[in-house]
Amino acid sequence: MSKDTFKVETKLTRLGRDVHDQYGFVNTPIYRGSTVVFDTVDSLQNNKAKFWYGTLGTPTIKSLEDAWSELSGAEGTVMSPSGLGAVALALMTTLKSGDHLLMPDSVYNPTRNFCKVFLEKFGVEITYYDPLVGENIVELFRTNTSTLFLESPGSQSFEIQDVPLLTRLAKQRGIKTIIDNTWATPIFFKAHEHGCDLSVEAGTKYLSGHSDLLMGLVSANAETWPALRAMYDSMAMLPGAEDCFLALRGLRTMHIRLKEAERRALEVANWLSEQPEVSRILHPAFEGCPGHEIWKRDFKGSSGLFSVVFKPGFSKEALSYMLDNMKIFGMGYSWGGFESLVVPFNCADYRTATKWNPEGLTIRLQIGLENVEDLMTDLRQGLDRLSAFR
């Protein structure tokens, strides 16, 4: 039986480790280090060793890079100390001064901030577009457009983009495509198979799974890999050995945790959709979510993050009263860990290409590994506070 025929659950238990190189130990050990000692002048001057300085890789780092590349169907992978760092690394790989970047209006807000604070300063022109633009994206292409950024589903609002269509149209004009694939991970969405040149993942989320590390990963297809690796090597923006070890550990259980997050989130989301205070659910698996049909066509599943739109009439003070007194749901900006989280949000604060005008207040939920009935009880009590606030 060839390892190429293994299902993803089996692959995840084997990727990025070789017990023969590890003296029989199951897990790749932690290699800390900066200096590498060479046997000869020739080896030193011509970089003939497998590793030649700590910033360019160690066995621990390479184990994770190789594992993620195989999982993603990529030519190669590099890492950074955070998801936002991975976004920056990908954008700097495809952009130069004077280029034009297309960015979805639903993008993760720190990515938007990086565009404003860093890219604009160095002469990159940025146009934000409707994530549901479809074929009309070609009307936004310019002669200097070098990069089309995608995020599917969109941050907080969960629009699903037609990635195969957009990457095909970009490729026809020599435009590079980058996707933030953190929500689905390569388990539920194969970004490179759908035409993306670079795929970004915040390993902080489901790869970690335990809310105890920060990490970003960028994988590349064969055409874009040399440029990505050259940019990475020029910056030495790599995570620590301990974080890579923890990420490799998280990789082993990621499929089980992701499938469980999917099951629990769908159960909670369906229950919430029936509550009298709720207007609708923003979840790609729900028919009313923008791009649902594309999600059914392109994705193999959904994760534990979704949003809720309340019916009109509730005040911000009532929402604060609801959230300030939650017993299980914590308020925090990350997700993908074992704990359930909630944040209120308002996309209208930053959108420029589309209007965000839902009928009521909105919250985003991360469903963790707590008992689902306990979560529903916590939410029901919170909804009671929302309704009772005067």
Results as ranks from 00 to 15, higher is better:
Arg364Gly: 03
Ala285Asn: 06
Arg380Ser: 15
Gln172Thr: 09
Tyr232Met: 07
Glu223Ile: 10
Asn47Ile: 13
Glu317Thr: 09
Arg263Glu: 15
Tyr31Arg: 10
Pro110Gln: 05
Asn113His: 13
Thr182Ser: 11
Val200Ile: 14
Leu214Thr: 11
Leu102Pro: 01
Ile328Trp: 03
Pro290Val: 05
Met254Leu: 12
Val309Ser: 02
Thr127Met: 06
Trp356Glu: 09
Asp378Pro: 04
Glu359Met: 11
His210Ile: 10
Ala222Met: 11
Ser106Pro: 03
Ala236Gln: 11
Arg263Met: 12
Ala202Cys: 09
Phe25Ser: 13
Thr354Pro: 04
Ile178Glu: 01
Trp271Lys: 04
Leu132Val: 08
Val308Gly: 04
Pro358Gly: 02
Cys289Asn: 15
Asn221Phe: 02
Val342Ile: 15
Phe310Ile: 03
Ala353Gly: 08
Glu277Tyr: 07
Phe122Pro: 00
Asp130Ala: 11
Lys96Ile: 07
Gly174Leu: 08
Ser315His: 09
Thr354Phe: 10
Pro29Tyr: 02
Thr147Pro: 08
Phe299Gln: 01
Ser106Lys: 01
Glu125Gly: 11
Asn27Trp: 10
Val124Trp: 01
Val268Phe: 02
Thr182Phe: 03
Ala67Tyr: 00
Glu193Met: 04
Arg380Asp: 15
Leu166Trp: 03
Lys121His: 12
Val133Leu: 14
Leu71Ile: 06
Ala74Gln: 01
Gly98Lys: 08
Ser155Lys: 02
Phe389Trp: 11
Asn371Val: 06
Asp180Ala: 07
Thr10Asp: 12
Ala202Arg: 02
Trp335Thr: 00
Leu95Gly: 00
Thr143Gln: 15
Lys176Ser: 11
Lys50Arg: 14
Thr167Ile: 05
Phe389Arg: 01
Arg257Val: 04
Gln366Trp: 09
Arg229Tyr: 12
Gly240Arg: 12
Glu317Ser: 12
Ala49Phe: 08
Glu262Tyr: 05
Gly332Met: 10
Glu242Gly: 13
Val124Ala: 01
Glu274Gly: 12
Lys7His: 07
Glu262Asp: 15
Gln381Ile: 12
Asp298Ser: 06
Trp68Gly: 00
Thr55Ala: 14
Glu359Cys: 11
Leu44Ala: 14
Gly336His: 06
Pro284Lys: 00
Leu282Glu: 02
Leu101Gly: 01
Gln45Pro: 05
Asn144Trp: 06
Leu84Trp: 04
Arg112Ala: 11
Thr143Pro: 02
Asp130Tyr: 09
Arg364Lys: 12
Phe245Thr: 00
Glu159Ile: 06
Lys205Val: 08
Ser234Phe: 07
Trp335Glu: 00
Arg280Phe: 14
Val133Met: 09
Pro358Arg: 00
Ser208Trp: 01
Asn47Cys: 13
Ala318Asp: 03
Leu84Thr: 10
